[in-house]
Nucleic acid binder design. Sequence first.
DNA 1: GTCTATACGCTGATAGAC
DNA 2: GTCTATCAGCGTATAGAC
Lengths: 186, 186
Amino acid sequence: MTTKENLIKLATDLILEKGFNAFSFYDLAKTMDIKTASIHYHFPTKTDLGIAVIRQQSESFIALQAANQKKDPVTKLEAFFSIYSRHKSQGKVCMVGSLCTDLYSLDPAIEKELKPVVESILQWVTDILKEGKRKGVFHFSATPRTKALLIITNMLGILQVSRITGKTDFNEVRTAILKELKTKTE
Amino acid sequence: MTTKENLIKLATDLILEKGFNAFSFYDLAKTMDIKTASIHYHFPTKTDLGIAVIRQQSESFIALQAANQKKDPVTKLEAFFSIYSRHKSQGKVCMVGSLCTDLYSLDPAIEKELKPVVESILQWVTDILKEGKRKGVFHFSATPRTKALLIITNMLGILQVSRITGKTDFNEVRTAILKELKTKTE
DNA sequence: GTCTATACGCTGATAGAC
DNA sequence: GTCTATCAGCGTATAGAC
């Protein structure tokens, strides 16, 4: 792994753990055992580093989506949930939740970069739900897009709230979402 | 309104808009037209100010809860949602979401202060759901506590995500939650 | 309660040597 | 690519006058 890739990975970890405004180039430098000035060679500004983090996460989402393209809707949704499970096991929140919370304190370039990523995630979940409904395995009354928002906000939110209420709540929520989706409504 | 009260209100606004780490005593000072040193008279440290914000929000929750004590479950839940509606109209996120996201970068005293508040909010919503179920107006298969977590995370999450996806999504979600709660499951 | 003055660590960032 | 050296600005916080 190159220094650049390492920096992106470390920055991602710190953003998901403490937030964009709470990590510094020095945090990265001491872990990498280099000087802060060297980081600026790879990323001129902190915003540039933030953008690289967003792009990398976006690619990661797209890869997961592609890897599950031919699977059934339940498996697809579980693949989506697995991202959050991994974050939860590390006490982290998700990138979208972390950056959206701090959004209005960040360089507008961050919002610009984040927007299409959020929209593509929303589209992905929406498509999974549509397919599930068509195949008769998922049942819900809201529009697929609204139901996708409900599920995404459940995942995003429980990562944050369960830092306080207890980490077992994540699995409670995850299980409940799937169970409810599989239950027919009158 | 006293200077102290004004400071709490302003700090609350800034935390919900930009996050705890993104606002400074200077932000407060310039708005109040005083010097930063004066703020330290009211709140020795930034953490002390944060704690005051949490207490004030807690009181606000308790007051709303008390004011709706004798209402029906639907009205109670709508009162709960109204908090988030007000935040949304100002482009803000909620206190719990904002602080939980930054939690691991903050003084542990913040977490200690926040924990009972989150638990009391969760208890409030849980009780509303229990009552609604008992009276036959709400229908859900998860435990009341888990369903409360689902609804709270929907509210918390949509405030954050809709900064990107569009503010009308808040009402979509709010309406869908209530509609789904009122629908019988098989 | 608010002020002036000040301390001082941290932060992102730059210039230029190697 | 990484370093040393350096910077200006910001941030919280304190001491002591008024």
